[in-house]
């Protein structure tokens, strides 16, 4: 049976940061991956394909925000058969995607000269230690929100229960939260009465998701928002122990020269758990 010619090898890998905004926050991870594949074709980007009967474009995702959650910081990696100018790819891909799926940043993966190694998304996923979230709670007073946050931070441990793929599980949500605070200024500027929370949450197993934290807030302080919260992921990246903030995970690639330390480390075999829905939490490689 004919197998067809061997696919062209990857000669350049690009890491892409994209946003999922507005009504497109209702796309699922599968919706996004189909949209990106089509956009890549429409934009004429020379994506590499896997071998085999049903070749797949080499596009891999590092964790994905859940359906319904907006994000300013989602990441994917594309393998190209011919090198392209990252700035052009950013513009072309963005133009080929529907408004609301927006390409923010494209950087070539730093590799040793002349060496194009197999994609190892887990190495990149390891840089995504935590996420910064913004949660808008319509109809909640800023005062109630502040009180709930204070009670949350004062607790040692907050056990919540959730249905996971492995059945009902109980886990602590407090430990994963490195900072959480109400954003009064943003709430005052909003178009309707609301409270806005900002927080940095470490990626752990099981993943602590924004709605788990809301469950926690409800448990410790009876905070019960009258309408569904509007959740946005603002950033992902390495956690800066000193500031409690997040660094840009693409920075190591921006530095020219030999590959970065952790790129060479053995990140394989460890499944990084990221926020987002359970199915899309793992790095999905094409």
């Amino acid at each position: 049976m004919p197998e067809g010619p061997a696919p062209a090898p990857v000669s350049q890998r690009l890491r892409v940061r994209y946003a999922k905004r507005g009504r497109l926050r209702f796309t699922s991870h599968r919706d996004i991956s189909r949209a990106v594949e089509r956009a890549v074709r429409r934009a004429g980007i020379p994506v590499a394909f896997s071998a085999g009967f049903t070749p797949h474009p080499k596009i891999s995702y590092s964790g994905a925000a859940a359906t319904g959650v907006a994000s300013e910081a989602e990441y994917l990696e594309i393998g190209l058969t011919e090198p392209r100018d990252p700035a052009r790819v950013r513009a072309d891909l963005d133009a080929a995607l529907p408004p609301g799926l927006d390409i923010l940043d494209v950087v070539p993966v730093a590799t040793a000269p002349g060496e194009a190694r197999a994609a190892r998304p887990s190495a990149f996923a390891d840089r995504l230690e935590a996420s910064e979230w913004r949660i808008r709670l319509d109809g909640v007073s800023p005062g109630d929100a502040a009180a709930a946050v204070a009670a949350f931070m004062a607790a040692e441990e907050i056990e919540v229960e959730r249905l996971t793929k492995k059945g009902r599980r109980t886990f602590d949500v407090r430990a994963a939260v490195s900072t959480i605070e109400p954003d009064r200024r943003a709430a005052e500027a909003a178009d309707a009465p609301c409270a806005i929370l900002r927080m940095v949450v470490r990626h752990s197993t099981p993943a602590v998701r924004p709605d788990d934290i809301l469950t926690g807030l409800r448990q410790v302080a009876d905070l019960a928002p009258p309408s569904p919260p509007l959740v946005t992921r603002l950033a992902q990246g390495p956690l800066d122990a000193a500031t409690g903030g997040l660094a840009d995970p693409l920075d190591p690639d921006r530095e020219t020269g030999p590959p970065h330390g952790e790129d060479a480390a053995t990140g394989v075999g460890r499944e990084p758990a990221l926020p987002g829905d359970a199915t899309s939490a793992d790095a999905v490689s094409a």
């Binding site: 009504r23 497109l24 319904g68 408004p99």
Partner: peptide, 22 residues
């Protein structure tokens, strides 16, 4: 849409009601 949007998290596959197809 402004009335629909806050209700979308309550239904299955909300993306089907959002439009915006290429």
């Amino acid at each position: 849409f402004p009335r629909l949007e806050p209700l979308l998290p309550r239904v299955q596959k909300p993306i089907q009601y959002v439009g915006g197809e290429l």
